[in-house]
């Protein structure tokens, strides 16, 4: 018995986890895949009806789907880009000798560990056009109040702002950890060569940070693509469909319109997008010389 276990330890140790993932993830995704070729509105009377690729065809002609796709990329790219720039900046600042650095680092953790639903509600109050502090602040500066989350033009920037608030610290902390572990010699050599701060940053720091940055961006991107809680708790995709990202649209199709087949098709497309972006980034990271 013991011998058998030892010989097959690779599998004995991994199988429980693999079986669990298979049961809880692969099977449901398989079922969703199956449903995506059927027409079903959750009825107990009429079972799912085979419609082949109809759901996909409808999906790619659905304006709202294409819009939600755009919004998802807009949200993800804008958020992650801003977070990366701000995060690197913040990390460089924090890499100096700061009084109370430990406490500062700890407090920066708070936005990202706070429960997203609660975070959403806090921001709803902050952005509230009539009583929110955002407009109180603008009016103190003599600027006109905005409608933030309730304006079709401002809703996406407002949501991106929340995401930036929530996640910039994470990028900053990851980059900070990377900065701390950088070797000192290249900088000394650069100093001798008379390089200025910007030159040593762009020529030494950035290239050395590349692997760390890739990892941080990958992590953030996966989560940004999937953002659900914050949007659901603040706008539920509104006003109109101005903040209806693909995740929210999938939820609406599935659980509000009960178009299960079409929702499943959308989820499969979503799944493929997220997966391919992830794989692409991992490959990129590999080429940059990092492994998992």
């Amino acid at each position: 018995m013991t011998n058998w276990i030892d010989r097959n330890i690779k599998w004995v140790f991994t199988m429980p986890a693999v079986i669990f993932v298979a049961l809880m993830m692969v099977m449901p995704v398989g079922y969703t895949f199956w449903l995506s070729f059927h027409d079903w509105n959750m009825s107990n009377v009429t079972p799912p009806l085979w419609v082949a690729f109809e759901n996909y065809k409808v999906l790619f002609h659905d304006e709202l789907f294409l819009k939600s796709l755009k919004l998802m990329f807009y949200f993800t790219i804008a958020s992650v880009a801003i977070e990366t720039v701000l995060g690197v900046g913040l990390a460089i600042l924090m890499n100096q000798n700061i009084v109370g650095k430990g406490i500062v680092k700890t407090l920066f953790l708070l936005p990202m560990v706070a429960t997203p639903v609660a975070v959403g509600l806090i921001w709803v109050l902050i952005y509230e056009p009539n009583i929110g502090i955002a407009n109180v602040f603008l009016q103190k500066l003599g600027l006109p109040g905005q409608e933030w989350l309730t304006s079709q033009n401002l809703v996406m920037p407002s949501l991106i702002f929340i995401d930036v608030w929530e996640w910039t610290p994470m990028i900053a902390l990851i980059v900070l950890a990377g900065l701390v572990s950088l070797p000192k010699d290249p900088y000394e050599a650069a100093m001798i060569d008379g390089a200025n701060t910007w030159q040593s940053f762009s020529k030494i720091t950035l290239p050395l940070l590349k692997p760390t940055l890739y990892s941080a961006i990958l992590l953030r991107m996966i989560d940004a693509l999937k953002t659900f809680d914050i949007i659901y708790a603040t706008t539920q995709g509104g006003p109109g469909t101005s903040s209806q990202t693909i995740n929210i649209y999938g939820y609406v199709l599935g659980f509000q319109y009960f178009k299960i087949g079409q929702a499943s098709a959308l989820l499969m497309v979503f799944f493929v997008i997220v997966l391919s972006i992830s794989i692409f980034t991992i490959l990129l990271r590999k080429r940059a010389g990092v492994n998992l």
Partner: peptide, 21 residues
């Protein structure tokens, strides 16, 4: 390979499981 499978579990949008679950 298994590591990748686990990574996929971290990547898949949770909403895809709701109905089957």
């Amino acid at each position: 390979g298994l590591g990748l499978l686990i990574l996929v579990a971290r990547i898949v949008p949770g909403i895809s499981f709701l109905i089957p679950w």
